[in-house]
């Protein structure tokens, strides 16, 4: 349902959508029911000719039931929400599937920059590819990310992955994603981080294995240095 408006392009995106739907439906049901009853009471017990509006102190058992019965039912709904949330939390946040590659993501006012591991799939080596505003990944592969912030708190958000993770100065936060489709999509900052927060955007380019390998070969600092050599 949500994916009619924003595509789902990670292995866990649908789980998160389902959780949002579960919460939305349960909370929405109680919200609408309460509002209907509330307005019914206001209209039904309003002042009429020869009759004052009623004031109910809520001390009688028959009155208290209007609070206690829904309260219990809401608690039952809470159990469903908590079970669903813990399940998703465990699968997305508590588990780290074996990675194909690890990328470094750095947030700063007001840009995202990235370090790709290059052809050797290892970060911290001579063929690391550093980019600003563009993260390149391969479809169908598990990526770990090491998220950092250079100045203030940011939040790395990829809507099509349903991924949102705060970046906190002084900490390196690990997470993961596995893209399920190709294309170019938005990366945003989801934490107010200063005057340029609204334009702190980047793009994630999800590529086929062949295309990604070609990009890595083309952007490798070793290749670029050789091309610039006289």
């Amino acid at each position: 349902m949500i994916d009619r408006y924003v595509e789902t392009l990670s292995t866990y995106a649908k789980d998160i959508d389902n959780l949002i739907l579960l919460i939305g439906v349960l909370v929405g049901f109680w919200f609408i029911l309460c509002e209907v009853i509330f307005f019914y009471f206001i209209i039904h017990f309003r002042a009429k000719d020869g009759k004052r509006a009623e004031y109910i102190s809520g001390e009688e058992k028959s009155h208290k039931r209007w609070i206690s019965a829904p309260h219990l039912l809401v608690l039952v709904c809470d159990v469903f929400i908590v079970v669903g949330a813990v399940k998703v939390w465990y699968e997305v946040k508590q588990q780290l599937p074996e990675p194909y590659e690890t990328v470094r993501i750095v947030g700063q006012q007001w840009a995202w920059s990235f370090v790709h591991p290059g052809a050797d799939h290892e970060l911290g080596t001579a063929d690391d590819i550093k980019t600003v505003d563009e993260l390149h990944v391969e479809v169908g592969k598990v990526y770990h990310f090491k998220l950092e912030a250079r100045d203030v708190i940011h939040s790395f958000s990829v809507p099509v992955f349903r991924l949102k993770q705060d970046a906190i100065p002084g900490r390196v936060i690990t997470g993961w994603f596995e893209p399920t489709g190709t294309g170019t999509y938005d990366i945003q900052c989801a934490e107010i981080c200063g005057i340029g927060h609204g334009v702190m955007v980047a793009r994630i380019v999800i590529e086929s294995p062949e295309r990604h390998a070609a990009w890595v070969a083309e952007q490798s600092p070793i290749t670029l240095a050789a091309a610039n050599r006289p």
Binding site: Q108, Q109, W110, I195, V201
Partner: peptide, 14 residues
Amino acid sequence: THFDDIMGMRMRPM
């Protein structure tokens, strides 16, 4: 747009 141009990256979105 250089990875180490911290001040430049702050200016670019502006």
